[in-house]
């Protein structure tokens, strides 16, 4: 908060703004008229059946995918065909992938310091110090000198979170962070995410972990066939959803 005030930004204005975003893969319409405002510090959980465009949506927010129509503004910077803007947004937005995407040829510590050193031009010593702090926060400082291949899936995903945090992002995107994990490892990753949420990070998570959603989400979004079908607080979303499709979807994933 202090940082924002110092930089003269209004903490209540939306930090991410999507206006009528449309995207096609070839002739397949994946995102249809997406409108979404995210305020600073807000936690949003997106769910929906596979192929509904939820991953594509958050991948558009850091320009991993290009949208064809509409406007995406992240922290005052519009994502357009200007490479400088894209670079700027990517520096401020961290992303955690389903498949972790750690760099297997680098140690855990090197994974965390690579971007700060080469993108932010931080001194190596300093980057390592920051990295160790974040590794402590995700509770794996003792694995710093191991290679990703030597860690369990849950540990790898926590390293991936620490790696993103090392860039000191304003916003974190999570793309199904627990879908590739064995059940016993899901909790250790979710715990770290809950902690991060409690510290006031702006987060957009694509996940089917409804327990997690109930604990941290400020807002739930249900997507189907490339559209936002329902948008509500967790309370309303889980207890009295409006749309039939939401009900059906919730019925399917909560029935077990």
């Amino acid at each position: 908060m202090e940082k924002m005030v110092r930089e003269g930004k209004d903490p209540t204005s939306p930090v991410i703004k999507l206006n009528g975003v449309n995207k096609w893969y070839g002739s397949f319409h994946v995102l249809r008229d997406i409108n979404l405002d995210v305020v600073r510090g807000e936690k949003i959980v997106i769910c929906g059946p596979s192929g509904s465009g939820k991953s594509t949506l958050i991948r558009c927010i850091n320009a991993l995918e290009e949208h064809q129509e509409g406007q995406i503004i992240v922290d005052g910077t519009e994502l357009n065909r200007d490479l400088k803007n894209i670079e700027k947004v990517r520096r401020e937005v961290g992303m955690v992938f389903q498949q972790f995407n750690l760099f297997p040829h680098l140690t855990v510590l090197e994974n965390c310091t690579l971007a700060p050193v080469w993108v932010r031009k931080t001194a190596k010593k300093e980057a390592e110090k920051t990295a160790m702090e974040y590794l402590e926060r995700v509770r794996i400082p003792d694995q710093a000198d191991k290679f990703p291949g030597q860690l369990s899936g849950g540990q790898q995903q926590r390293v991936a979170i620490a790696r993103s945090l090392c860039m000191n992002p304003e916003i974190m995107l999570f793309d199904e962070p627990t879908s590739a994990l064995d059940p016993e490892m899901i909790k250790e990753v979710l715990d770290v995410m809950v902690e991060l949420a409690n510290e006031g990070m702006t987060m957009i998570c694509v996940t089917h972990e409804m327990g997690f959603a109930k604990t941290v989400a400020d807002r739930m979004i249900f997507m189907d066939q490339g559209q936002i079908v329902e948008e509500a607080t967790p309370d309303i979303f889980f207890n009295s959803p409006e749309s039939e499709r939401t009900k059906e979807f919730l019925g399917q994933i909560l029935s077990h």
Partner: peptide, 18 residues
């Protein structure tokens, strides 16, 4: 090399050559 490697780099703000 899986595409995720290059995507992870992009999401960290690294350019093509980096």
């Amino acid at each position: 090399i899986p595409r995720g490697q290059a995507e992870a780099c992009q999401s960290l703000g690294m350019g093509y050559w980096q």
